[in-house]
Design a binder for these strands. Structure first.
Lengths: 148, 148
DNA sequence: TTGACACGGTCAGATGATCTGACGATATTG
DNA sequence: CAATATCGTCAGATCATCTGACCGTGTCAA
């Protein structure tokens, strides 16, 4: 699919490492904080829930999975008390998935670790390079994220 | 795990989009070229096979999965004729996984698409920004890739 | 207003990917 | 040579993911 380990790697593969590293760090911190019943896939869904709740279909679209998969993961998150489903006042067909109390607590932990890891990366790369990296990635997102 | 869609996203999440986009493009191209029996997970393993073959344990380490998972995926790749296992001349315990003829053909297709997608990204971001992005990601890999 | 179609979500079933734990065979090292 | 580490596999379980079918609700145009 791409190179062996030694050669120049494509940008997609290079993006894999930081993504995976961040995810692993957050998951580890969550587990250490007592949120040990959350999986990576659940986290990827939960990470895309907006402040006022998000529709299942939107979650699926943002996470690039089918709505069935998203539904499955939301079921688990709901059972574990991280999220809740409420009716969407603007559309009787839809329901909004939003953070429950336990979910908000987990988000707080996740945010802290995110900031911590970013700080480490910034310390290693330097402020300027990091800012450039972020800008480039945000720009790239415009053409690689089918949702936004 | 992180923000809703609107807010500022952490660098890990931002890395997700290009990675996923590249992977999807390569997979689609492979399927179109007749290599339609390969999955993303198989591709992630195959992408890490070096020119002269690579040990299963190394593949697992590079792809950040257990050796059991790697073995499972290599089994499938072998059954589909993409790779072959040969004895490691330097160690009777080990075997080297290396590309078979069909695998090499698939790699050729993948390389072409990689280059194509990178060219698109470069056109969108500009030469300079893209070079900066690559440099930053390569640097970041030093502290986020447990293997290298 | 009503019929055709789009959209939000779920159910059912299948497959794929991944892990933990245990194990046999070979290397390495003191 | 004995102790220990490494390489890979087997077995079994669980989680994630997809396709296809389906029901209820919204939308829009004739």
């Amino acid at each position: 699919m791409s190179d062996g380990a030694a050669d120049r790697q494509n940008l997609g593969v290079l993006c894999f490492y930081p993504h995976r590293a961040m995810e692993a760090r957050i998951l580890a911190a969550l587990a250490a904080a007592g949120f040990d019943d959350i999986t990576a896939a659940q986290g990827r869904i939960a990470a895309r829930i907006g402040r006022d709740g998000t529709r299942l279909t939107d979650l699926a679209e943002r996470a690039l999975v089918t709505k069935q998969t998203a539904g499955h993961l939301v079921d688990q998150l709901e059972r574990s008390g991280y999220v809740e489903r409420v009716p969407d006042p603007t559309d009787a067909r839809a329901r909004l998935v939003r953070m429950a109390r336990r979910g908000q607590a987990a988000v707080a932990v996740a945010r802290r670790v995110e900031a911590e890891v970013e700080a480490e990366w910034t310390a290693y790369l330097g402020e300027e390079v990091t800012a450039g990296l972020r800008a480039a990635l945000e720009r790239l997102r415009e053409i690689t994220d089918p949702f936004r």
